[in-house]
Every structure is written in C-alpha cells, then in structure tokens.
Amino acid sequence: QNRQGGYNNQNRQGGFNNRNQGGYNNQNRQGGFNKNRQGKPGMRQNQYGMPQGGKSFVPRPKRIEYETEIPDPNAQIRLNKFMSNAGICSRREADEFIQQGLVKVNGQVVTELGTKISHSDTVEYDEKVVALERKTYILLNKPKDCVTTSDDPNGRTTVLDLVKGACDERIYPVGRLDRNTTGVLLLTNDGDLASKLTHPKYVKKKIYHVWTDKDIAEEDMQRIADGIELEDGPIHADAISYATETDRNQA
C-alpha cells in the first residue's frame, strides 16, 4: 500500500494525473508560448506575452546560386555531352544531329559518334555557334489559359511569357501540360535531365488531380483503367481512384 505503483499511487503517481506536471500546464516551470515574458512598461502584449504592434515582414525569396567549377581548358569532353551541357538538346538527340551532319567542329562537319573536343574548340549547330551556359532550373506553378510551348502562332500566353526575364539562359519546358491544366512544370536548359524525365525508357510517372462538373461513376473509372480510345489513339491510366471517400467529382 505504501509503494503501490500504477495510477492509484497517491504519493508518486505517474501518468497524466501527476501533480508535478510538465509541459504547457506546469504552473511553476511553464514552458512554451505561455511563459510569462514581461515587455517594457506600458507596451501592449499579445496572447503569447510578446510585444504587440508594428509591421510584420515576410522574407523575400532568395535566388539560389550554385558554384560552378572552372573547366580545365585542356580536358576533352564528348561532343554530345557538350551540346547537352549547352542546353541545345539531350545527348541522344545530339547523336542524331551529329549523324545528320548538322554539327561542325572548327568549321568541319563531324558525323562520327563519340567524337571528343576541348573547350578551346568552336562548335556549331545548325550554322550557329554553341556556347556553354550554366544549368538553370525554374519550377513554375502553371496557371490556366496558358500553353506549354516556346512560341504560339495564335498569340496565346505561353509558359515562357510567364518566366520572361527570370534568367538569361535559354530554357525550355520539360514535357507539357494542356492549356487549362494547372500544376508543376519544370523549365530548364539541362538536356540530360529533360531526357531522363520525359523519355519512356526511364518510366517516369505523372499524377493528375482531376475535377469534373459531375460525379464520376464507378463504371467510368473502370473504363479509364481498362483503356479508352481518343482521337489520337488508345490511352489508359496505370492507376485511378477517387480523391476522397465522399466526393465523386474528383479523381
């Protein structure tokens, strides 16, 4: 009876009923936001005991700068990698351009794959000199009524219009979102990364959250999973489900 354990011990009681209670309800050594902090005499305080009033400031987002290694002028690099680093295309696409005779090194057409060059060599693609650019990445929350292209013949707003002036490098959208689709879109001049994110062999999956103007029937959900025929061919989802347990117009 004197050394009884558990919740019935009146002297050394443990658990939630301990009178020597810590945390926010401790009257003697109270911590957290309720700790009594006195401000200057006459100064108004908020519910947390902190001085009240004045303007609130939100930190401005800072542009992240990465250190770039200075390349060794005598080191050699594969031609396709050089073109990819310059933001022209992916390495695979560079190989195709090389085989098509569209690439020159020091004024001479190069068609042999695996060709290596030095940083002092002059590379031309499509009769234009290729210059190295630092790799740039812009993550855009694409709004509606905006097309994913670098130039629209119909004069509609493009994703590049939205990020105009954000950087000096030539960037391109990775993949595409339909005009009225919103969400994350990456723009970059990193050809290798763009290829890894979009080429089918890397099996990168996308998740779409869709709202409809009416409830989606279960049989329609099954049809989408099994595959449906569109104007440009058949399509099916790898997986599909309702977004919530109660709302049937979100998938």
Score class of each variant (00 low, 15 high):
Q1E: 09
N9R: 08
N11D: 02
Q13P: 05
G14D: 07
N17Q: 13
G22F: 03
N26P: 11
Q27H: 08
Q30F: 10
G32Q: 14
K35T: 05
G39D: 02
G39P: 02
M43W: 09
Q47A: 02
G53E: 06
G53A: 04
S56Q: 05
R60E: 01
I70C: 08
A75G: 12
A75C: 13
R78K: 15
R78A: 15
L79S: 14
F82L: 14
N85V: 06
A94K: 15
I98A: 03
I98P: 03
Q100T: 05
L102A: 14
G107W: 12
V110Q: 15
I117L: 01
I117A: 03
S120P: 11
Y125I: 14
D126R: 09
V130Y: 15
L132W: 08
E133I: 10
T136K: 02
V147F: 04
G155D: 00
T157C: 01
L160F: 02
A166M: 08
E169W: 03
L186Q: 01
L186C: 02
T198Y: 02
H199S: 12
K204E: 13
K206W: 11
A217S: 10
D220S: 02
R223Q: 04
R223V: 01
A225G: 00
G233C: 05
P234G: 06
H236I: 00
S241N: 01
E245M: 06
T246N: 11
R248K: 07
R248I: 04
A251T: 10
